[in-house]
Computed example of a mutant assay.
Amino acid sequence: MEHLKVPDLSVGTYCIPAGGVDQQSPHGEDEVYVVTAGRARIVTPDAEAEVGPGSVVFVPAGEEHRFVDVTEDLALLVVFGPAYGSRAK
């Protein structure tokens, strides 16, 4: 859910329930996730890491990424720069 959008950035929330599947595809914008609740792993072509409350993850534009093994309801604050959907994928 998007909460704020201006040309240079947008801010939203993204939630995945425990056991849920992250079905997002790469975005045309750089992205920062801040985990506010829950536990999972973030997987990219080059790395993977455990995430939990307070974790901050940067994903460059166009990079494949997915949250997997969601063991607790995952709640994320998401910041896109520039605003989500403003660049072609």
Rank of each mutant, 00 (worst) to 15 (best):
Q23G: 10
G54H: 03
P82M: 15
A61T: 08
I42P: 13
V78W: 00
P82H: 11
G12S: 03
G38D: 05
V57C: 07
P82G: 13
Y33T: 01
I42H: 10
K5D: 08
V68W: 09
V59F: 02
Y14N: 10
P45A: 06
A37W: 09
M1R: 11
A88R: 09
E2I: 03
G28T: 02
K5N: 06
H27V: 05
S55V: 14
I16Q: 00
E29M: 06
D30P: 14
L4N: 02
H65A: 05
M1A: 11
I42N: 08
D73R: 10
E64S: 11
A18S: 10
A88V: 11
A47G: 15
P60K: 12
L9H: 14
E72W: 05
D69Y: 09
V11R: 00
V70R: 03
I16N: 03
V6Q: 13
V56K: 03
E50W: 10
K89D: 04
F67H: 02
P60M: 12
G62M: 00
M1V: 05
A47M: 15
A47L: 15
E63T: 10
P7A: 15
G85V: 08
A40Q: 01
V79W: 03
L9C: 13
L74W: 00
H3C: 03
Q24L: 12
H65L: 07
V34P: 01
T13R: 15
V70S: 04
D69Q: 10
V56P: 07
A61N: 05
L77R: 10
L4G: 02
Q24S: 14
S55N: 13
T36K: 09
T13V: 13
A61C: 06
S25F: 06
K89Q: 00
P60A: 09
M1Y: 07
D73K: 11
P45C: 07
E63P: 04
T44N: 02
G19P: 01
G54E: 00
P45H: 06
V43G: 04
E2K: 07
V43L: 15
V51Q: 09
G38K: 06
T13W: 13
R87G: 00
D46E: 08
A75R: 08
V78A: 07
V57Q: 08
C15H: 13
I42M: 12
A47Q: 15
D69H: 11
E48W: 08
G62S: 00
V11W: 02
H3E: 05
D69G: 07
I42G: 10
V43D: 04
S10W: 02
G54M: 04
H65G: 05
V21F: 14
V34I: 10
H27M: 02
D73H: 11
V79I: 14
